Simulated scan of single mutants.
Amino acid sequence: MSEIDIGRLGYLGLLLAALVIWMFMQQRGRMAQKLQQLAAWGLIFLAVIAAVGLWDDIRHTVSPQQSVFAEAGRIELPRAPDGHYYMTLQINDTPVRFVVDTGASGVVLTRQDAERIGIAAEDLAFHSSARTANGAVETAPVRLGTVTLGRFEDRNLPAFVNGGEMDNSLLGMSYLQRFDRLEISGGTMVLERR
């Protein structure tokens, strides 16, 4: 648990304590009713804490996911609540979630995703660089053994590992250009490939 989480928990504890004290001060004579109200507020408090703690899991379960129509050679990606499009590819049989970035020329992995797919950190040579909105970053060129999406499989795909901090891996044009059609319409990105 980080210091920020401990601080938030402390704040919520103080808020609950203030609420309990206020409730007892307001209704000094009716102990059974106080306990009943205290139990109700306690359940509400626990429900809010559970919802906040599980929000990422709930959001990913409820939000629409990518759809792969293998026979038609079509992939549909819904726009996420943050306005981006995300695609999950199997790289060396490991699922990796990417932000689809038509402004990026290549595929760029975070260090964590690179390690997950079997690229050892000590094997990375950061001798190239890329320009980003936040300035220049060092990158290490790599090759991805197999990249699979539905029935589509590509081998030996060139990519880079970002030397800086990055929240998500980026799926740029070196992969997207393998599709015959890329269209954004009505909050859905459609990719088609034969």
Score class of each variant (00 low, 15 high):
residue 1 M to C: 10
residue 2 S to P: 03
residue 2 S to Y: 01
residue 3 E to Q: 12
residue 5 D to N: 09
residue 5 D to G: 10
residue 5 D to Y: 08
residue 5 D to F: 07
residue 8 R to E: 06
residue 11 Y to L: 10
residue 13 G to H: 05
residue 14 L to S: 05
residue 15 L to V: 06
residue 19 L to C: 05
residue 19 L to A: 10
residue 20 V to A: 11
residue 20 V to D: 03
residue 24 F to T: 04
residue 26 Q to I: 04
residue 29 G to A: 14
residue 29 G to D: 05
residue 36 Q to I: 00
residue 37 Q to N: 06
residue 40 A to H: 02
residue 41 W to H: 10
residue 41 W to Y: 12
residue 42 G to Q: 03
residue 42 G to E: 00
residue 43 L to D: 03
residue 44 I to P: 04
residue 45 F to H: 11
residue 46 L to I: 13
residue 48 V to K: 00
residue 51 A to F: 13
residue 52 V to G: 03
residue 52 V to A: 04
residue 53 G to R: 00
residue 53 G to M: 00
residue 53 G to L: 07
residue 54 L to V: 03
residue 55 W to I: 02
residue 56 D to S: 15
residue 58 I to W: 03
residue 60 H to W: 01
residue 62 V to T: 05
residue 62 V to Q: 04
residue 68 V to Y: 01
residue 69 F to T: 08
residue 69 F to C: 05
residue 70 A to S: 11
residue 70 A to F: 08
residue 71 E to Q: 08
residue 74 R to I: 03
residue 74 R to Q: 07
residue 75 I to P: 07
residue 78 P to R: 06
residue 79 R to G: 04
residue 83 G to Q: 09
residue 84 H to Q: 00
residue 85 Y to Q: 04
residue 86 Y to Q: 03
residue 86 Y to K: 07
residue 86 Y to P: 00
residue 88 T to N: 12
residue 89 L to P: 12
residue 93 D to E: 12
residue 95 P to K: 01
residue 98 F to C: 03
residue 98 F to Y: 06
residue 98 F to I: 10
residue 100 V to N: 07
residue 100 V to I: 10
residue 105 S to K: 14
residue 106 G to N: 13
residue 107 V to I: 13
residue 109 L to P: 12
residue 109 L to W: 10
residue 111 R to L: 14
residue 111 R to P: 14
residue 114 A to Q: 02
residue 115 E to K: 15
residue 117 I to W: 10
residue 118 G to P: 02
residue 118 G to W: 05
residue 122 E to K: 13
residue 122 E to V: 06
residue 127 H to D: 03
residue 128 S to K: 06
residue 129 S to V: 10
residue 130 A to H: 11
residue 131 R to C: 00
residue 132 T to H: 12
residue 135 G to T: 08
residue 138 E to Y: 05
residue 138 E to M: 00
residue 141 P to S: 12
residue 145 G to A: 15
residue 149 L to C: 14
residue 150 G to V: 02
residue 151 R to H: 15
residue 156 N to S: 13
residue 157 L to T: 07
residue 159 A to T: 01
residue 160 F to G: 09
residue 160 F to E: 07
residue 160 F to Q: 11
residue 163 G to V: 08
residue 168 N to R: 02
residue 171 L to D: 00
residue 172 G to T: 06
residue 172 G to H: 01
residue 172 G to C: 11
residue 174 S to T: 15
residue 176 L to K: 13
residue 176 L to N: 13
residue 178 R to W: 06
residue 181 R to Y: 06
residue 182 L to A: 07
residue 184 I to G: 08
residue 185 S to D: 13
residue 186 G to W: 01
residue 186 G to F: 06
residue 187 G to L: 01
residue 188 T to F: 09
residue 189 M to R: 04
residue 193 R to M: 01
